[in-house]
Amino acid sequence: MNWLLVIAGAVVGAPLRYLTDRAVQSRHDSVFPWGTFLVNVSGCLILGLITGAAAQGAASSHLQLLLGTGLCGALTTYSTFSYETLRLAETGAGLYAVANIAGSVTAGLGAAFVGVSVAQGVWS
């Protein structure tokens, strides 16, 4: 049963990631990978909310599997982040590569902390 929850979340997360990335990138005339940045930070926020809710007893293990593992696992993408950062560096956009690394790590961790804090505030 658990694997079905992960699959169900991934069935939503993977196309959502692709469609969000394409929609965001089509609106920006920049080499910076805004689409990947957005889905990764959004996934960190969602995972923070779920983790905080679970810590407060407000999210079941089934919800964690569905949204945390399935949805967020398919929505976020470390491999694309790595590939796009490498491509930026290889094409001479080193400053963008460094900004992508620093911004993604900082915003992702920040979003996760905000998610946990919001969930704790709501369910404590």
Rank of each mutant, 00 (worst) to 15 (best):
121 G>R: 11
45 L>H: 01
82 S>R: 08
26 S>L: 04
49 L>W: 11
120 Q>R: 15
56 Q>L: 12
21 D>K: 13
55 A>I: 07
93 A>K: 15
96 Y>T: 12
16 L>W: 10
8 A>H: 06
52 G>V: 08
82 S>W: 12
95 L>N: 15
58 A>S: 11
13 G>A: 04
71 L>D: 12
97 A>T: 07
13 G>Y: 00
87 R>K: 11
24 V>M: 06
110 G>T: 02
76 T>C: 04
116 V>S: 02
75 L>G: 06
105 V>C: 12
34 W>T: 01
54 A>M: 09
46 I>W: 04
26 S>K: 04
1 M>K: 11
116 V>P: 00
71 L>G: 12
3 W>S: 10
40 N>F: 01
33 P>T: 01
90 E>R: 03
15 P>N: 02
118 V>M: 11
104 S>M: 11
48 G>W: 01
1 M>Q: 09
119 A>N: 11
18 Y>P: 00
35 G>E: 05
81 F>Q: 03
3 W>M: 15
46 I>L: 14
124 S>T: 15
66 L>W: 01
7 I>H: 02
115 G>L: 11
3 W>L: 15
40 N>M: 01
15 P>D: 04
95 L>V: 15
44 C>R: 06
15 P>V: 06
100 N>Y: 13
121 G>K: 10
23 A>G: 07
40 N>E: 03
81 F>D: 01
24 V>D: 10
97 A>V: 08
43 G>H: 07
75 L>D: 04
16 L>G: 14
12 V>D: 09
52 G>K: 10
115 G>T: 13
81 F>S: 05
112 A>P: 13
17 R>L: 04
22 R>P: 01
76 T>F: 07
114 V>K: 01
83 Y>N: 14
47 L>T: 03
10 A>I: 02
55 A>N: 10
47 L>K: 00
31 V>F: 08
58 A>Q: 05
108 G>F: 13
19 L>E: 06
101 I>P: 14
10 A>S: 10
11 V>D: 02
88 L>G: 02
111 A>Y: 00
26 S>W: 03
13 G>L: 04
119 A>L: 12
38 L>A: 15
91 T>Y: 07
117 S>D: 14
120 Q>T: 15
101 I>M: 15
45 L>C: 00
61 S>P: 08
24 V>P: 10
101 I>Y: 13
37 F>M: 12
109 L>D: 09
43 G>Y: 08
106 T>I: 11
67 L>G: 02
49 L>R: 09
41 V>T: 00
22 R>A: 08
115 G>V: 10
54 A>D: 02
12 V>E: 06
52 G>W: 01
82 S>G: 15
58 A>Y: 02
101 I>D: 15
73 G>W: 02
74 A>P: 08
74 A>L: 09
66 L>S: 03
48 G>F: 04
109 L>V: 14
1 M>V: 13
76 T>L: 01
75 L>W: 00
74 A>G: 12
84 E>G: 07
